[in-house]
Simulated assay, not measured.
Amino acid sequence: MTDTKPKTCETPTAKQQRVWDKAAHSYDKQIALFERIQFAGGREWLAERAQGRVLEVAIGTGRNLPHYPQDVKLTGIELSTEMLSIARDRATELGIAADLRQGDAANLPVEDASVDTVVCALSLCTIPDPRRAIAEMSRVLVPGGHLLLLDHIGSTWPPVYALQWLAERLTIRLAGEHFTRRQLPLVQAGGFEVVETQRLKAGTVERIHAVKPVEPSQS
């Protein structure tokens, strides 16, 4: 008899959780070389601009933890429970009292206007709905709060961009990983004021510092 029971479809978010749970225990080793060559100084750049109540979205294994100023109050959100476990161990080893929670970037378990800085490093390239994630980052920021992003994006050099596009044909399907996606237009469309950007490594890496506008007082 033919099985007519419909097959369960995996959502993009569930797929990302599965992919990063599987990659969690080898992630630090795999990313180390790329951080030295392509993203060098990026985590320090983010952390030195973070202030007050800081929310890191997609904190991963906690590779930003050693770089934050000691006076920030840090909350971290991570979809992958396996990566979150590693981040918690890292925070304990470093003596950092961070509130690390499991959660989705598209539905942050954080109250409106409750943080001063949002940080997201090397993650909007894989988050299924980056526009919604940025809207959530805006929601939880206080007016005048800071948004700090680091990611790889499509190169300004056509031969490199072509290679990135080709690589995406495989990486998007297997792991939801985008190489030509760019976050800056989404940040601008989300109403943020961009105050600082850096584009490095043949245009393949971008750092963004933006501020959520302060609404004019109503008379």
Rank of each mutant, 00 (worst) to 15 (best):
V72G: 03
T117C: 02
L79W: 12
A162R: 15
A167D: 04
R169F: 10
G145T: 06
R169P: 00
A175T: 05
T8Y: 12
A189G: 05
D112A: 11
P69H: 09
N107M: 09
D21Q: 07
S138P: 00
M1V: 00
D28M: 06
P159F: 05
H146F: 08
A23T: 04
T81Y: 00
G60W: 10
G191Y: 06
R132Q: 11
Q188V: 11
R207S: 04
I77Q: 02
V194E: 08
I208M: 02
H178E: 05
T180E: 08
D104M: 01
V160L: 15
T2Y: 11
Q183C: 07
G145K: 12
V118G: 06
L108Y: 05
G190N: 10
S80D: 05
G191Q: 07
P143S: 07
L170Q: 08
V72W: 10
I37M: 13
T197M: 04
T126M: 12
Q38V: 11
W157A: 01
R131D: 07
T204C: 13
A189N: 09
A97Q: 12
H209R: 04
A113C: 12
L74I: 03
A50W: 09
D151A: 03
G103E: 10
T197W: 11
Q164I: 05
I153T: 12
R18D: 00
S155A: 10
P69F: 09
R169A: 06
W165D: 09
L147D: 03
I96H: 03
D3R: 15
D89H: 14
Q102G: 02
S155G: 05
L124W: 12
P128M: 11
Q30W: 13
Y68F: 15
G144Y: 08
S155Y: 11
A58T: 07
A98Y: 02
S26R: 15
L122W: 14
A98D: 05
T117P: 07
L200W: 07
Y27G: 05
R173K: 14
L174I: 06
A133T: 07
S114D: 00
T197D: 08
L100I: 01
I127K: 03
L100H: 04
F192E: 05
P66K: 00
E196L: 07
H25T: 11
C120N: 09
G191V: 03
Q51I: 01
C125N: 04
G144C: 02
A14S: 14
R131Q: 13
T61G: 05
S155E: 09
P6Y: 13
L33N: 12
T197Q: 10
Q70Y: 08
P12Y: 09
G203T: 01
C9T: 15
L84E: 01
R49M: 03
A14N: 14
Y68D: 03
C120P: 04
L186I: 04
L163M: 13
L170I: 13
S80R: 12
H209T: 00
D129N: 14
D71V: 01
W45C: 00
S114N: 06
D104L: 04
A133M: 10
